[in-house]
Design a protein around this nucleic acid. Sequence first.
DNA 1: AGGACATCTGAACAACCGTTCACATGTCCT
DNA 2: AGGACATGTGAACGGTTGTTCAGATGTCCT
Lengths: 114, 114
Amino acid sequence: MGHQRGGASASVRDGLDEQSASAVAQVLQGLATPSRLHIISALSEGPLSVGTLATTIGMESSAVSHQLRHLRELGLVTAERQGRSIVYALFDEHVLDIIDQALAHTEHLDGSSS
Amino acid sequence: MGHQRGGASASVRDGLDEQSASAVAQVLQGLATPSRLHIISALSEGPLSVGTLATTIGMESSAVSHQLRHLRELGLVTAERQGRSIVYALFDEHVLDIIDQALAHTEHLDGSSS
DNA sequence: AGGACATCTGAACAACCGTTCACATGTCCT
DNA sequence: AGGACATGTGAACGGTTGTTCAGATGTCCT
């Protein structure tokens, strides 16, 4: 993994053009909220409907729907109609790894606080 | 253990209490901006002063200082006075992995747009 | 067709964020 | 001490964001 645009995996170490920076920022911003993290955490155990999600997390259905739309537009979750419900699922488990790494960072910080 | 974890690390798959969700959201929010991503990208090649950072990225020194403060409070970068300059460095290379994973996600999305 | 249920949508509002500006603080050099 | 350089700080401004509310759309069942 060395060069930009070349192979399978680019790295921030090779530099970030404005386009990539904006794209990465959008994805991370999509995960940078407690409510959306709760949604993704709930979905990590399997697909759930909007209503179930709402009661599980303790949010209004409308709010959940709004956030779900956001996550859907970022390609983080997928939607599938099932009867009168709409069942959402994680696009892939990749997202969970990102969150786990952020979690690891916060744990690694205990002990060197200001 | 799930995937690539080596110790007793927690995972989002085990659920997220409000405290952890808030902490993770803060860290991710700290990376969820093009300007801060540019800063971290520049620092990935080694420590840099505020001024050098500013001219490299094309931001005002004051703006860089503000964002640096943000990153410092999140434990993402460290500061060390060196003469009249203050040299910033990444706290660890962990952060780069998070960004790389987000980058990989955006690339993985090309070709399956909605 | 109707009514009940589930989700989506748009407007509106408060809260937050990143930048700029003006100025303060701190450091080196003569 | 002074002046030049480097960074930090606080207020303020425009833009964005997450939530709520009210209503629209869509689906099932009798």
